[in-house]
Simulated scan of single mutants.
Amino acid sequence: MTAYMGFFELCKPKMGEKVFVSAACGSIGSLVGQYAKLFGCYIDKLGFDDAFNYKEETHQSSTLRRYFHERIDIYFDNVGGKMLKVVIDNMNIFGRVVVCGATSEYTDIRKRAH
């Protein structure tokens, strides 16, 4: 339900739009990616159009421009942190963002409360 409602009800996709899903390897992200692809959107491998590992990319903004040279219409965010800022800087006017998670914050031990 989270993937379906987040994508269709909040993002309100249109056929042909460019969709970026962070952490598309997880249960929600992979469903959002499949919904986007089935709906006729361009989606970032695993049956998607392209993919990259955000943890391995040193220049995430350049990477996004390489895959989304026409910029991003919909961002389904499961990562948060630096990735969120980079994607917002690469979005089209009237683009939509759904924040579903912040895994970059969960896994950084320096950000955990003691």
Rank of each mutant, 00 (worst) to 15 (best):
M1E: 12
M1Y: 11
A3M: 09
M5Y: 13
G6E: 01
G6M: 02
F7L: 07
F8V: 04
E9A: 14
L10V: 12
L10T: 06
L10I: 12
K12C: 11
K14R: 14
K14Q: 11
M15C: 06
M15H: 07
E17M: 11
E17D: 07
K18R: 15
F20E: 07
V21G: 06
S22T: 14
S22P: 09
A23Y: 02
A23E: 04
A23Q: 00
A24Q: 00
I28C: 13
I28A: 13
G29L: 02
G29Y: 03
G29H: 08
S30Q: 14
S30I: 09
L31E: 13
L31Q: 14
L31A: 09
V32K: 12
G33K: 02
Q34W: 05
Y35L: 13
K37C: 02
L38Y: 02
L38V: 02
F39H: 06
G40C: 00
G40A: 00
C41T: 00
I43M: 04
K45D: 02
K45H: 05
K45S: 09
L46W: 08
G47Q: 08
D49V: 02
D49E: 12
D49S: 12
A51E: 06
A51M: 09
F52K: 01
N53F: 10
Y54A: 06
E56M: 14
E56C: 08
E57N: 02
E57D: 03
T58Q: 10
H59G: 03
H59D: 15
Q60D: 00
S61Q: 10
S61G: 10
L64F: 08
L64V: 09
R65T: 01
R66L: 08
Y67C: 01
F68T: 07
E70P: 03
E70M: 04
R71M: 12
I72R: 10
I72Q: 08
Y75E: 04
Y75P: 04
F76H: 01
F76Y: 14
D77T: 05
D77N: 15
V79Y: 08
V79M: 08
G80A: 07
G81V: 04
G81H: 02
G81N: 12
G81F: 06
G81K: 05
M83V: 15
L84G: 01
L84M: 11
K85N: 13
K85M: 09
V86W: 03
V86D: 14
V87Q: 06
V87S: 03
D89Y: 00
D89K: 06
N90H: 11
N90K: 05
N92P: 09
N92Q: 12
I93G: 10
I93Y: 15
F94Q: 15
F94G: 09
F94L: 13
G95P: 08
V97P: 10
V98D: 06
G101F: 12
E105D: 10
E105Q: 15
Y106T: 10
Y106D: 05
T107K: 10
T107S: 14
I109A: 13
I109R: 11
R110I: 05
K111Q: 15
K111M: 14
A113H: 14
A113C: 08
